[in-house]
């Protein structure tokens, strides 16, 4: 499948993505509902996006924005797959069954944001110690050892 066919296919399947999709570095992003994320990721994989580059999250206040970067080696293209989960119920299905690469990546997101990946075989803290309290990359994280942001910059 060449890149133009892929573009057509993607535009037909995901109309909201169409104007954003660029072939070079794949700044195009596709936002789906959290419950559709797994099937969208599965679709992407079948389209040739066979490499899970990274899984991460951004704290957007009310919600967490989950960011999956999925890459295609053949087309040298990458795409962002995004989903918003609520802060109160941060649940999303794991993509471990599609890419084993998600194993440690999702553990890291759980470690830093407290997002629960349903279906992940071994969801434990990875970088922090097991008894750590809180999720440090959340914007409301407080810790007595944290140095406050100086005002003068």
């Amino acid at each position: 499948m060449n890149i133009n066919k892929l573009r057509e296919h993607l535009c037909a399947t995901y109309p909201d993505l169409c104007p954003l999709f660029s072939i070079e570095f794949g700044d195009g992003s596709l936002t789906v509902a959290p419950e559709r994320l797994h099937s969208a990721a599965s679709d992407m994989r079948d389209l040739g996006f066979d490499f899970l580059g990274m899984v991460t999250a951004v704290d957007r206040g009310e919600t967490f924005e989950l960011v999956y970067r999925i890459q295609s080696r053949k087309m040298s293209a990458g795409i962002f797959l995004k989903a918003y989960v609520s802060r109160e119920e941060p649940y999303i299905s794991s993509v471990y069954d599609l890419w084993p690469a998600a194993d440690w990546q999702e553990r890291e997101v759980y470690d830093m944001f407290g997002i629960i990946f349903e279906g992940h075989p071994d969801l434990r803290r990875i970088l922090l110690t097991d008894d750590w309290v809180g999720y440090p990359l959340r914007k409301d994280y407080e810790d007595e050892r944290m140095i406050r942001r100086p005002d003068y910059i």
Binding site: M54, V58, D59, V67, R69, W104
Partner: peptide, 29 residues
């Protein structure tokens, strides 16, 4: 390997979020 940096800006002089896609992390898994 493929070392990526993901930056989110909110218009202030500091990044809102920085994520490093670390190849060593993925390889070690």
């Amino acid at each position: 390997g493929s070392l990526g940096v993901y930056l989110v800006s909110d218009g202030t002089p500091r990044p809102y979020r920085m994520k490093v896609r670390s190849p060593a992390f993925c390889n070690l898994a």
